[in-house]
Computed example of a mutant assay.
Amino acid sequence: MTRYRRTVIVATLLLLGGCASAPEGTGAAPAVPAPAPTGSAVPAPADATGAFNEADVMFLQMMVTHHGQGLELVRLVESRARRTEVKTLAAAIDVTQDAERETMRDWLSGWGRSTSADPDVHAHADHGGMPATGPEQIAALARTTGTEFETAFLNLLIAHQHNAVEMARVETRSGTHAGALDLARRIDLSRTAQINQMLALLPPATLR
Rank of each mutant, 00 (worst) to 15 (best):
S79Y: 01
S79K: 14
R82P: 06
R82I: 15
T84A: 12
E85R: 15
V86D: 05
V86C: 06
K87C: 08
K87E: 09
T88Y: 15
A90H: 00
A91D: 15
A92I: 11
D94T: 11
V95H: 08
T96Y: 11
A99I: 07
R101P: 01
R101I: 05
E102M: 14
E102H: 10
E102T: 13
M104D: 09
R105H: 07
D106H: 09
W107F: 12
L108H: 13
W111Y: 12
W111N: 05
G112V: 12
G112D: 05
A117R: 14
P119F: 09
P119M: 08
P119Y: 11
V121R: 12
H122F: 11
H122M: 08
A123T: 06
A123E: 00
A123K: 07
G128A: 02
G129V: 11
G129Y: 10
M130R: 14
M130T: 12
M130S: 08
P131W: 00
P131H: 00
P131K: 01
G134E: 02
P135A: 04
P135N: 03
E136V: 14
Q137Y: 01
Q137A: 14
Q137E: 11
I138C: 01
I138E: 00
A139K: 05
A139M: 04
A142C: 08
A142R: 05
R143P: 00
R143L: 06
T144Y: 02
T144I: 02
G146H: 03
T147E: 11
E148L: 02
F149K: 02
E150C: 06
T151W: 00
A152W: 04
F153E: 01
F153N: 01
L154E: 03
L154N: 03
N155C: 06
L156S: 07
L157Q: 11
I158R: 15
A159Y: 02
H160R: 03
H162F: 05
E166G: 07
M167T: 05
A168G: 10
R169M: 11
V170G: 07
E171Q: 11
E171D: 03
